[in-house]
Write a protein that binds this DNA or RNA. Structure first.
Length: 724
RNA sequence: GGUCGCGUAGCUCAGCUGGUAGAGCGUUGCAUUCACAUUGCAAAUGUCGGGGGUUCAAGUCCCUCCGCGACCACCA
């Protein structure tokens, strides 16, 4: 054995050995209980970042449960990540001075497909580099045809069940990216702006007017009413009267609606149903007409008359100018408020009326809530249970239509604006197109497909789309055991998986949700390119090894909390790996000496010494039993950080610093006591290796093989069943 | 505004159902041909955010104040 543990030499060799032996390939083993984790599929559009290294939690669970004798499946895959990937790709295009608009649909789609396929091998290699026990023979891709079939099937069944509807509603639209979003893709930021007070004259009463306050004067062109609170005495006399909308001189009514806050502004609100969610709701209640003045390109449209073609902010200035000249602008004041912006590009999101596919969430959410309340799905840390319920209780209907090219095309057809039909059979689809039908040009929100990931993966492997029949793999491995992911996507992903999983399969998609926090830098700061504190996992692995990086992410963190990573911490864990290696090396050396027989210069070892040594051995055995027990408790309750810290302290600061030192002389004496000492030390050591292997699989396997030969593996040779 | 969380050694953080504080890194001193300097031994440093309460006993439970953070809702 080398003097130092050489991770650069050992890690590739060991991983290759694991793959050759197919140690990560899951099989259907009727006599074993399955343990399944579906890897949250990384977006196939960039290199791995440290966040992905957090998959180590899953690897720990997989390896631990394999040692316990479960049939484990850790299924890898990639997310096509619809809009996200298109956005990344567009940035590449921009560097070449091009844009998505330079290509037709098919060409752009193919280009992005190729881009993603180029990315995948790199990502696979990086995941392997981390030592992950993923079963690559079952890799899936969210937009691959066999997966799409499952997704389509769910769509169709939602449609048939009446849980899917197409309707014109206000959607969150980003005119720069050219697509609508669900509520979850809208960020809110504080913006300094002004509150403008506009005077709307009363028809037939010269000199009389109503003042409204607005932050969006340009939308006044689309006003179809002014609302006041029915309880507001100031305006009681105005209700039912008609106002003359300045600039365009259109007549609009004054209406009463509870939604108006008398305290805010003047207590009178302009109602623009086409461009404000609240106003839209009022319009629905009061049957007001809809006048759209802003288009999907971020410019005013024909209805805006002489302002048509102007960009929103330009139009605002122009309209304010006109209002000022006509004396309709009473005053303006500084105002700070929150505006919704596109989570990707920061453009202000425009609420625009658009026909889209929506999922009626309520029935799905109610079922999901029941599953959670009944503990059919448990959460770790526990606090997320309540959070999940709250999220589901507030879920709005989900807009799943996106106007992007990169995504799964929605399989809905209609003819001349007629009724929509959903058709999945490719042959019949062709027939429909030939008959003059047109397919919805939109694609699915990427979460609609990833929301089905736990069953779509397994079903597609079986070549099936029907959860009620399923196939061998689906039947055996579903529901999955654990969904482990970041708590930041509890809402966007986990909640949706529960709802769609329940709908499609009638079962929970996973029995446990295990959530981890964010990876932060050593000062607890969020990582960002602008701060320059981004940790490159590959760089750390090059320097300190995959084990060190893995352990650094787990060590000293609170489960479910954020984890801090630093070069120093990683180095410390590298040192731990080396310590493990050297303990093994030392035991091996002693074993050889014992084999060789008595050595002339062996130290004098008295009966008294032997007695003392035997006592130490006894103590060690007792201590090891306690550690083993604690370890199993920590590991089975998800407290992995505690488990690792326990073994770290035990192996280094008890086993090596104390027991090994005390028993050194006994071993050197080559007496029977020495042999007993060696045997016990070796047993406890190897057992500790096994317990450590889920955290740091490489160094433990490397040492294991020094003891048992290059052809053996911890994963095959032992079972923690024997330990409990 | 609502919900949740945090404030413990120089830094980053652990401390479960209450019994006079721990780890990693860092710091200081000593050791070293004998497994490992990617080492060992030893040492220093904390009124556990402020105040009040419950208790024989409180980082640990309750109240309050101060300072942070996350998520959600919403303001025309």
């Amino acid at each position: 054995m080398e003097k130092r543990y050489n991770h650069s030499a050992q890690e590739p060799r060991i991983f290759e050995f694991w793959e050759r032996r197919k140690l990560f390939e899951a099989r259907i083993s009727p006599d074993k209980k399955p343990f399944t984790i579906i890897l949250p599929p990384p977006n196939a559009n960039a290199d791995l970042h440290v966040g992905h290294a957090m998959y180590v939690y899953e690897d720990i669970m997989i390896r631990f449960n394999k040692l316990r004798g479960r049939e484990v499946l850790w299924l890898p895959g990639f997310d096509h990540a619809g809009f996200e990937t298109q956005f990344v790709f567009e940035k590449h295009l921009k560097k070449q001075g091009k844009s998505r608009l330079d290509f037709d649909r098919e060409t752009l789609y193919q280009m992005i497909w190729d881009f993603v396929e180029e990315n995948k091998p790199k990502m696979r290699a990086q995941l392997k580099r981390l030592g992950f026990a993923l079963d690559w023979s079952k890799e899936r891709f969210t937009i691959a045809p066999e997966v799409v079939r499952v997704v389509y099937d769910t769509f169709k069944r939602l449609f048939d069940a009446g849980l899917l509807y197409r309707k014109e509603r206000l959607v969150n639209y980003c005119w720069v990216d050219g697509t609508s979003f669900s509520d979850l893709e809208v960020d809110y930021v504080e913006r300094q702006t002004k509150l403008w007070y506009l005077k709307y004259p009363v028809k037939g009463e010269p000199g009389a007017y109503l003042t409204i306050a607005t932050t969006r004067p340009e939308t006044m062109l689309g006003d179809t009413a002014v609302a006041v609170n029915p309880k507001d005495k100031r305006y009681a006399g105005f209700i039912g009267k008609t106002l003359i909308l300045p600039v365009v001189n259109r007549e609009i009514p004054v209406i009463a609606d509870e939604m108006v806050d008398p305290e805010f502004g003047t207590g009178a609100v302009k109602i623009t149903p086409a461009h404000d969610e609240n106003d839209w709701q009022v319009a629905q209640r009061k049957n007001l007409p809809l006048i759209q003045v802003i288009g999907f390109d971020g410019r005013l449209i024909q209805e805006a008359g002489r302002f048509a073609g102007l960009k929103i902010n330009v139009a605002r200035e122009a309209i304010l100018e006109v209002l000022k000249e006509s004396g309709a602008l009473e005053k303006e004041q500084d105002y700070t408020h929150r505006v919704g912006v596109c989570y990707k590009c920061g453009t202000i999101i425009e609420p625009l009326p658009l026909e889209q596919w929506f999922i009626a969430i309520k029935p799905l959410a109610l079922k999901a809530i029941k599953r959670i309340k009944d503990d059919e799905i448990t959460f770790y840390p526990k606090k997320f249970k309540r959070q999940a319920i709250q999220i589901l209780e507030r879920y709005h209907d989900w807009n799943i239509s996106r106007q992007t090219v990169w995504g799964i095309r929605i399989p809905a057809f209609r003819k001349n604006g007629g009724k929509w039909i959903v058709e999945l059979d490719p042959e019949k689809q062709k027939q429909l197109l030939a008959d003059g039908f047109e397919q919805d040009p939109d694609t699915f929100d990427t979460w609609f497909s990833s929301g089905q990931w736990p069953f779509a993966t397994l079903l597609s492997l079986d070549g099936s789309t029907n959860p009620s029949e399923g196939g061998e793999l689906f039947k055996y491995f579903y529901p999955t055991s654990v969904m482990e992911t970041g708590h930041d996507i509890l809402r966007a992903w986990v909640a949706r998986m529960i709802m769609l999983g329940d709908f499609a399969t009638g079962k929970v998609p996973f029995e446990q949700v295990y959530l981890h926090g964010m990876v932060r830098d050593k000062n607890g700061q969020k990582m960002s390119k602008s701060k320059g504190n981004v940790v490159n996992p590959v760089e750390y692995m090059d320097k300190y090894g995959a084990d060190a990086l893995r352990a650094a992410l787990i060590f000293g963190t609170k489960d479910g909390g954020d984890t801090n990573i630093s070069e120093e911490k990683t180095l410390g864990m590298r040192n731990f790996a080396n310590k493990i290696w050297n303990i093994g090396r030392f035991i091996r050396m002693n074993a050889d000496w014992v084999e060789e027989g008595p050595k002339p210069d062996a130290p004098i070892f008295t009966d008294k010494d032997a007695k003392k040594a035997l006592k130490t051995i006894e103590k060690l055995e007792k201590r090891a039993a306690v550690v083993r027990k604690q370890y199993l408790i920590f590991m089975s309750s998800g407290k992995f950080s505690k488990g690792l810290e326990l073994l770290y302290k035990f192996l280094w600061h008890e086993f090596a610093d104390s027991y090994l030192e005390t028993l050194k002389d006994a071993m050197r004496s080559r007496s029977d006591t020495g042999k007993t000492a060696l045997k016990t030390l070796q047993e406890v050591y190897l057992e500790t290796l096994v317990m450590l292997s889920p955290f740091i699989p490489f160094v433990t396997e490397a040492v294991w093989q020094e003891f048992h030969g290059q052809n053996s593996s911890i994963l095959e040779a032992v079972s923690l069943r024997d330990l409990s």
